[in-house]
């Protein structure tokens, strides 16, 4: 319990550090006037004056930092001037569930698929099944996600949309789960798969290597000497132990995807998630939005990391004692 509190305190500290860093990068870089950047291109002197006063750019840096954090997290009235005064935080809050649905679904697919592929490959080490699966994994890693997405769109939306195979595919865009669960599933199943492909490749290869290395460990030899079946040794002793590495890898990837790393997939499939928001802000140089999404993704990476640490405690008794 104290360990968890300790971990929470650490998380808060890291979040504070991240926010200072992000603030510094955006507003305290010398040689650029943040007022002009927030107000957008060709802003009138009145607007410039208003922005300068609102964000406190005429006051010392710590005050500016506090104002910015207040606008981001407390009053949540950080507004985008490039986009005619649209409030940034509610926009992100609207986009976040879309990204979360996309990433969670993809994560489910890539975790199940890569565990299956990696375990089968390790069990049939050096056979053609193993080589075939690992080759497939390598292909998955090599395919760029935006290309795969475009090809998927081309096939399902265009050329073969009217065949029996793909007539169920809805048009690009997102359907909220609350509106229609089936529509939600249909809209997301292809993006999920496309996003998962590369991770299936990476994770199945990592897991196979891990399992093959573990096969030489003393405790695997002990398990065989106990007279257990090879499958039980592989699953209960090998796979269970390699889950420790697997989870730490998963935490990092999951966090960066939730924090906007699924940008390309969201753009290609027209999903209004955080990634697409960032993409739009980047094309219009909408500084408040960029700032907010960066902050948001940093928060998610840190939180996901803390979650992984908690899962770790359950997976690895050695960690439990160390903390």
């Amino acid at each position: 319990m104290t360990a968890l509190l300790h971990r929470a305190g650490q998380t808060l500290l890291v979040l504070f550090g991240v926010s200072v860093l992000v603030f510094g990068v955006f507003f305290a870089t010398p040689g650029a006037d943040p007022t002009a950047r927030i107000a957008g291109r060709n802003a009138s002197p009145q607007i410039m004056e208003k922005v300068r006063h609102e964000y406190g750019f005429d006051r010392p840096l710590p005050v500016q930092y506090v104002i910015m954090m207040k606008k981001l997290f407390i009053t949540r009235d950080l507004a985008s001037y490039a986009n005619r005064g649209e409030r940034v935080v509610p926009e992100i809050m609207q986009a976040a569930p879309v990204t979360a649905c996309l990433v969670c679904g993809a994560a489910f697919i890539w975790v199940t698929m890569s565990i299956a592929m990696g375990t089968v490959a390790a069990a049939m080490k050096d056979t053609w099944v193993d080589r075939g699966l690992m080759m497939l994994g390598l292909v998955g890693i090599s395919i760029p996600v935006f290309w795969l997405g475009e090809v998927a769109n081309l096939v399902t939306q265009n050329r073969y949309h009217d065949t029996w195979l793909f007539s169920w595919v809805p048009g690009l865009g997102y359907v909220p789960f609350s509106q229609s669960p089936l529509g939600w599933f249909r809209a997301l199943v292809i993006p999920w798969t496309v996003l998962a492909v590369m991770f299936i490749g990476i994770y199945s290869r990592v897991l196979r290597t891990d399992l093959v290395t573990l096969a030489g460990e003393d405790f695997i030899r002990t398990a065989h000497a106990k007279g257990l079946s090879p499958i039980r040794v592989l699953l209960w002793h090998g796979l269970r132990t390699s889950m420790v590495t697997f989870v730490s890898l998963f935490g990092m990837d999951f966090a960066q995807l939730v924090g906007g790393g699924a940008l390309l997939t969201e753009v290609v499939f027209g999903l209004p998630g955080v990634g697409r928001l960032t993409y739009r802000a980047l094309t219009t140089l909408d500084l408040p939005v960029i700032m907010a999404t960066v902050m948001y993704s940093a928060v998610f990476v840190v939180l996901a990391n803390a979650a992984v640490d908690v899962i770790y405690v359950f997976l690895d008794p050695r960690v439990r004692d160390a903390s």
Partner: peptide, 28 residues
């Protein structure tokens, strides 16, 4: 055959190893 020798292993013939630290699976 592997299946038959497996039934002897651990039941009729058991083995203990050099390094007891690494000979147990760490997560159980």
């Amino acid at each position: 055959p592997p299946r038959q020798i497996r039934r002897l292993r651990g039941r009729d013939i058991a083995m203990i190893f050099q390094d007891p630290m690494t000979a147990f699976t760490p997560v159980y």
